[in-house]
Simulated scan of single mutants.
Amino acid sequence: MNMDWNHPNVFQYEKTIGLKIPCYEMLYDMMDRLLAVQLTKKEADILIVGAGGGQELLTLGKNHSKWTFTGIDISANMLDLARKRLKSAGVEAKVQFIEGEVDHLGQECHFAGATCMLVLHFVRDKRAFLQRIADCLVEGAPLFIASINGDPHAEPFNWQMRAWREHMLANGIAEQDWERFAASIGTHSYPIPARDVEDLLKESGFISVTRFFSAYLIDGWFAVKGDCK
């Protein structure tokens, strides 16, 4: 959860992210299994929004040999990290990487599914962001999304943050790293209440919005692209 994604320290992301986020590996395992039961075709082209780091690509690439992926991310360094991890796992040939925003994707909606894990809270205009992802998907395509959510001005948010701090420190995360993360909320990340995320998904053309994961302030949902007409 480093805020400067082009800083050289992003290469430590792989080593620390699992110590910061409770049930990190379970989140991606659940995403993989739920996505697999929704995609009945053996061959599928999946859009990975925020592909830097490579966790989604590794998880899905290892388990689904017939799937191909388009991974997009604004950080060149994070994409390099993803490439290195995929090369070590032997799945790099399945992936096309794009450095840039989702607006850089083509206009044709052809992806059979999409993931956007731990990205949405960094986006200011969440409605336009989700709509652009929806525009890239075929009707019936599933979207998996996870983000930090809540009202930073509400007391329950503060309770969750205090407990999350204890979790991170107990896992060896330095106090200064926690302080940087806490200070980034409202300046580099922009969480909104979970119910607002669900509303935005529906407004962007998604149906069957279902929460499948929750840990402290992180929630995960899957939804399905509705009728394109």
Rank of each mutant, 00 (worst) to 15 (best):
G52L: 08
S147I: 03
G150Q: 02
M117A: 04
A141C: 00
L35V: 10
D103G: 13
F11A: 04
L217I: 09
D177N: 12
E179F: 07
H7A: 09
R165I: 13
N9L: 08
V209Q: 05
G18T: 04
V209P: 04
E101H: 15
L27R: 03
G186C: 00
M26C: 08
S204F: 04
R165S: 14
E175P: 08
P142A: 00
N63Y: 11
E179I: 14
L200A: 07
G61S: 13
G172P: 10
Y28P: 02
H110Y: 03
S214M: 09
L19E: 10
Q38L: 15
L35Y: 08
D4G: 09
L86S: 10
T40I: 10
I185W: 05
T210W: 08
K15T: 15
V123H: 04
T70G: 14
K94F: 08
D196I: 14
L169F: 07
E99R: 15
A114Y: 03
K66Y: 15
I173Q: 13
F181C: 03
Y28C: 02
E203R: 11
L200F: 09
S214G: 11
Y13I: 03
F222C: 05
R211P: 06
R195Q: 09
F222S: 04
E43M: 12
Y190C: 06
E14A: 12
A128I: 06
T59R: 14
D219S: 13
G113H: 01
G53F: 13
L200H: 07
S214Y: 13
E56H: 15
A223N: 01
D32A: 12
Q176W: 08
T210V: 11
M1Q: 06
P193A: 11
F69G: 12
T210G: 07
V224M: 07
P142S: 00
K62R: 10
D219I: 05
L58Q: 12
V49A: 13
C136S: 08
H7R: 01
D135P: 01
A154R: 04
A112L: 03
D227G: 05
A114H: 03
E14C: 04
G106Y: 11
L19Q: 11
F129V: 02
L39A: 08
D80N: 11
L105K: 03
K202Q: 07
K225W: 01
M168I: 06
M3T: 10
L86W: 11
V138E: 01
L118S: 03
T59Q: 15
F129C: 00
F206L: 05
V102S: 05
Y190A: 07
D125Y: 02
L217R: 04
G54E: 13
R124W: 03
S88Q: 14
H153G: 14
I48W: 14
A36I: 13
V119K: 01
R132A: 03
I218P: 00
D135Q: 01
G71Y: 12
I148L: 05
P191R: 05
R124C: 02
C23N: 11
T70V: 15
I192R: 07
L34I: 10
H104M: 15
I98C: 09
Y24A: 05
R162P: 03
V102Q: 05
R132L: 02
C109D: 11
D199Y: 13
E43T: 12
G61V: 15
F213S: 01
F69I: 15
L118T: 03
